[in-house]
Design a protein around this nucleic acid. Sequence first.
DNA 1: TTAATTGCTTGTTAATTGCAAGTAATTAGT
DNA 2: ACTAATTACTTGCAATTAACAAGCAATTAA
Lengths: 129, 129
Amino acid sequence: MTYVLEILGDKWTFLIIRDMLFKGCCQYKQFIESDEGVATNILADRLKKLTQHGLITQCKDPENGRQKLYHLTEKGLDLIPSILHLVKWSGQYDPNTVLSNAIMQFLEGRFDEAVQIVRKEYLNNCHVH
Amino acid sequence: MTYVLEILGDKWTFLIIRDMLFKGCCQYKQFIESDEGVATNILADRLKKLTQHGLITQCKDPENGRQKLYHLTEKGLDLIPSILHLVKWSGQYDPNTVLSNAIMQFLEGRFDEAVQIVRKEYLNNCHVH
DNA sequence: TTAATTGCTTGTTAATTGCAAGTAATTAGT
DNA sequence: ACTAATTACTTGCAATTAACAAGCAATTAA
């Protein structure tokens, strides 16, 4: 449990993974624009640590040499259940949640299916694995 | 999702909840001794915030007036699935994990049951709900 | 009635974050 | 070919936060 906290015990780290999973972010620029205002030095630091811990990989974009592509590894993808449960919890208790009733019911009734969907969606869209 | 991070996006907050769930901590002193070295001002701050957010309650110990008892609310207990998934993830990837094979297999095969067990154990031991 | 115990608060120092600016490598436009 | 953008960073500094140490009020035990 200390292990998770070492890696994820930080707001931005969590947001980076969320943006990769749910918004398809895979570039530095996208994180800067999407994450609710990460400072660029913090983003660089967190991407580095996530890479060192084996949750994401970095590679040059073969189609544009000045861009890098960031992708979740299996280890990173295995956080989907935890994250989806936290999403569900937010939906239950956040008075300003944006989650629809339909999504909440799906998370309540067919959670494991939801995990698989998120995983497959990610893998289909990132064109790496 | 931003909602969870506002509340839990902090190492110590998470450890407090973990200690309540798995170590039966319900007193200030116990957190100081158990949490891997929280500073007392930080602990006071986090307990206050957890209370304000409705994840825990504080009450005077009826048997000892200088002590307070901290307990998880339903809202706090509803984090058990998220936390157990993180525990499971740690068990999978932390090379120094202390989780036994038996526990890991139980988490893999009968996760929902594990959630119920943790919940019931907590409620049985805290003598409040 | 003195000494512990418990749950804090208040400084002060050290570490971390956030912001602004700048840089190297690559690509696009003229 | 040359200039201007774009992308992924780094660096320096101010502001915020955390960690450490000490102290304090309320209650209880000796």
